[in-house]
């Protein structure tokens, strides 16, 4: 586009200022990642010296070996993956099903039910933390992934999001046509609606997956046994271990962060788009 809002001409003070802001912001964003990488490649005694190192060292592999000696890193990663994937698929299914009902089906009290769902978004999750823990112990779900997955399927925002998308993205005529052909409501959902809302699955799925992957407080409360630790809880255990080996701690943090960065860079645009859509809506 040729219109300009900030400054004009090839070189200007304003343009310079814009670049200063952006380059400065990017450097501040990147520095902690670089710092983490450096420390992950250094021995503890190098990190403890003054001045601290600012270039990568040679102990990347050694530090990671220490990590796996202290925590079950790959086990924790698998746990995180399993929990995040289960909640993501479950949420997508339940939210789109409810969103479809709110968008295309007629039933009594529709607006009241939808209003109730929006109200639940206002409730701070910490309020019920202790009774939730109590319920989990009563169900005997302590140290069980169900403790994370089942409550994790509650997602008011997801239902809201799916309703909006189905309202706009699925024409009424198609649903009506399928009905006349004798499809049941669930068949319409499964065979007609789902194929039309795959992009919404991708965007909502990314948001949900990231939230679950990074979630900490609830897994910390209900997953006590190291065998069921998710990555975040395991990292905390690593950070709390007796020997304060910063090289090892940073190595664990680094390798826990790298996969997410790759996923992010792969779906970069979709990711940013979905988050901003979620807010603007």
């Amino acid at each position: 586009m040729s219109t300009r809002e900030v400054g004009e001409g090839k070189f200007s003070i304003k343009k310079f200022f814009v670049y200063v802001v952006l380059v400065g912001g990017s450097l501040v964003s990147l520095f902690p990642f670089y710092y983490m990488f450096i420390m992950a490649t250094r021995l503890n005694r190098e990190i403890n010296s003054v001045p601290p190192p600012f270039t990568p060292g040679t102990n990347l592999v050694e530090n990671f070996q220490k990590v796996t000696d202290n925590i079950d890193f790959f086990g924790a990663m698998w746990n995180s993956l399993f929990v995040s994937a289960s909640i993501t698929f479950g949420t997508l299914f339940l939210c789109s099903l409810a969103g479809y009902a709110f968008a295309k089906l007629e039933f009594k009290g529709k607006n009241i039910f939808f209003g109730l769902i929006l109200v639940t978004m206002m409730v701070p999750p910490q309020l019920g933390l202790i009774p939730q823990y109590y319920i989990i112990t009563e169900l005997n779900w302590l140290n069980d992934f169900r403790a994370i997955i089942v409550p994790g399927l509650i997602n008011a925002f997801g239902i809201f999001w799916m309703r909006q998308y189905i309202n706009e993205g699925v024409p009424y005529e198609i649903v009506e046509a399928a009905k006349i052909d004798g499809c049941s409501n669930f068949r319409i959902y499964w065979n007609v609606v789902v194929p039309m809302i795959l992009p919404a699955f991708a965007t909502l799925g990314i948001i949900v997956f990231m939230h679950v992957w990074n979630d900490f407080l609830w897994p910390l409360v209900v997953l006590r046994d190291p065998a069921v630790h998710t990555l975040q809880v395991a990292l905390r255990a690593l950070n709390d271990s007796r020997q304060m080996d910063y090289g090892m701690i940073m190595s664990g943090t680094f390798w826990a962060t790298v996969p997410l960065i790759f996923v992010f860079l792969m779906f970069n645009r979709l990711f940013i788009q979905s988050l901003s859509e979620g807010a603007v809506k």
Binding site: L30, F33, L231, L235, I261
Partner: peptide
């Protein structure tokens, strides 16, 4: 935009 957004995907623990 990508670089400035990058910190958000990092977990709070990290």
């Amino acid at each position: 935009r990508t670089l400035i957004f990058l910190p958000y995907i990092t977990s709070i623990v990290a």
